Lab assay of single mutants.
Amino acid sequence: MNLTVNGKPSTVDGAESLNVTELLSALKVAQAEYVTVELNGEVLEREAFDATTVKDGDAVEFLY
């Protein structure tokens, strides 16, 4: 899956889609429990991480 992460191209191997929690784990995001996630310009509530799917071509920003 090809994404733009914090403005840079990134690839997650072996996945066509992941939820936000899985993406944080796959990318080994440090202190993931404290990060705010913006997906395609929309800031996500932490409670929505498990239910929100990240797909090929999406833009993700991790805000600390």
Rank of each mutant, 00 (worst) to 15 (best):
V12N: 02
R46V: 06
E33G: 09
Y34V: 12
E42F: 10
E45N: 12
E22I: 05
E16Q: 13
Y64D: 12
A59P: 01
E22C: 08
A51G: 11
N2F: 11
D13W: 15
G41A: 03
L39H: 04
G7E: 03
E38M: 15
L3P: 02
L39T: 00
E22G: 08
A15P: 09
G14N: 09
L18P: 01
Q31M: 14
N6R: 02
K8L: 11
T36L: 10
L24A: 00
G14P: 05
V12Y: 08
D58W: 03
V5F: 03
T4R: 09
A59T: 14
S25F: 11
K8T: 09
V20L: 07
A51I: 14
A51C: 13
N6E: 03
N40T: 01
S10Q: 15
V29I: 13
L63K: 13
G57R: 05
V12R: 03
E22Q: 13
L27S: 00
L24D: 02
L3T: 03
A51H: 14
L63V: 12
R46P: 08
N2V: 12
D56C: 06
N2Q: 12
S17P: 08
Y34G: 08
E45W: 07
F62N: 02
L63S: 14
T11W: 15
D56W: 06
G57Q: 05
E33Y: 07
L23T: 01
T53E: 10
E47P: 07
E45L: 13
G57F: 03
L3R: 01
P9C: 12
P9E: 07
T21Y: 08
L44D: 00
E61H: 10
K8S: 08
E22H: 06
T4S: 07
T21P: 02
E42K: 14
F49Y: 12
S17C: 11
T36H: 08
L63I: 14
V35C: 09
A15S: 09
T36C: 13
L3I: 15
T4Q: 07
M1S: 01
E38H: 15
L39M: 03
E33Q: 11
N6L: 03
R46H: 07
L3M: 05
E33L: 08
D58G: 01
L63D: 12
K28A: 09
L63Q: 13
D58R: 00
E47C: 12
D13S: 14
L27F: 06
N6M: 05
P9F: 09
T52W: 05
T21R: 09
N2E: 07
V20M: 10
L44M: 05
F49E: 00
L39W: 03
T53M: 14
G7P: 02
A48K: 12
L23I: 04
K55L: 06
F49R: 03
S17D: 06
G41K: 04
L63F: 15
G7T: 03
E45K: 12
E33T: 07
T53V: 13
V60Q: 01
S17Q: 10
F49K: 01
G41S: 04
S17T: 12
V5W: 03
D58Y: 03
T52A: 06
V20C: 04
R46C: 08
V29N: 03
E16K: 14
G7R: 05
A59W: 13
T52C: 06
V43D: 03
D56A: 09
D13F: 15
K8Q: 11
E16G: 11
A26Q: 10
L23Q: 00
N40E: 01
D50Y: 06
V5A: 03
K55I: 07
D56L: 04
E45Q: 12
E22M: 09
V20N: 00
L18C: 10
E38S: 15
A48D: 11
Q31T: 07
T4F: 08
A30Q: 11
E16R: 12
E42M: 14
T52Y: 06
V5S: 03
Q31C: 15
S17R: 11
Y34P: 05
Q31H: 15
A30T: 11
K55T: 08
E45C: 13
L3E: 01
G41C: 06
V54Y: 00
T11H: 15
E61R: 15
E38F: 15
E22V: 05
Y64T: 12
K28P: 03
L44F: 04
L24G: 00
E22R: 07
L44V: 15
S17F: 13
V29H: 04
V54S: 01
L63E: 11
L24M: 09
D50P: 08
K55D: 03
T4Y: 08
T4H: 07
R46Q: 07
Q31L: 14
V54Q: 00
N6V: 02
M1C: 06
T52N: 04
F62T: 04
N6W: 00
L23F: 03
G57H: 05
S10D: 06
V35K: 02
E16F: 14
D13E: 14
D56E: 09
A30I: 11
L24V: 05
E42Q: 14
V43P: 08
V43T: 09
D50A: 08
E61L: 10
G41R: 04
G7L: 03
T52V: 10
V5L: 07
F49W: 15
A48Q: 12
E16Y: 13
A26M: 12
A59N: 13
Y64W: 11
E45R: 12
T21I: 07
D13C: 15
S25E: 12
Y64H: 11
A15H: 13
V12D: 02
T36E: 07
K55H: 11
L3Q: 03
N19M: 06
L24E: 02
P9R: 10
N19V: 05
L24C: 05
A59Y: 13
E38P: 00
A15K: 12
L39K: 02
A30N: 10
E38W: 15
K55Q: 08
F62W: 07
A15T: 10
E61S: 10
Q31G: 14
V60S: 02
V20W: 03
K8H: 10
N6I: 01
T4L: 13
A32L: 12
E16V: 14
E42T: 13
A59H: 13
V54M: 04
D13R: 14
T4P: 02
V43H: 08
R46W: 07
E47A: 12
E47D: 12
E45Y: 09
A32I: 13
L63C: 15
N6F: 01
V12C: 09
E22S: 07
V60K: 01
T11F: 15
V43Q: 08
N19R: 06
A59E: 13
V43S: 06
K28R: 11
L39C: 04
V5Y: 00
A48F: 12
L63N: 12
T53I: 14
E45H: 12
A26E: 07
T53P: 08
A51V: 14
K28S: 09
L39A: 01
T4C: 14
A59F: 14
K28Q: 10
V12G: 02
L39E: 00
N6S: 05
P9S: 09
K28C: 14
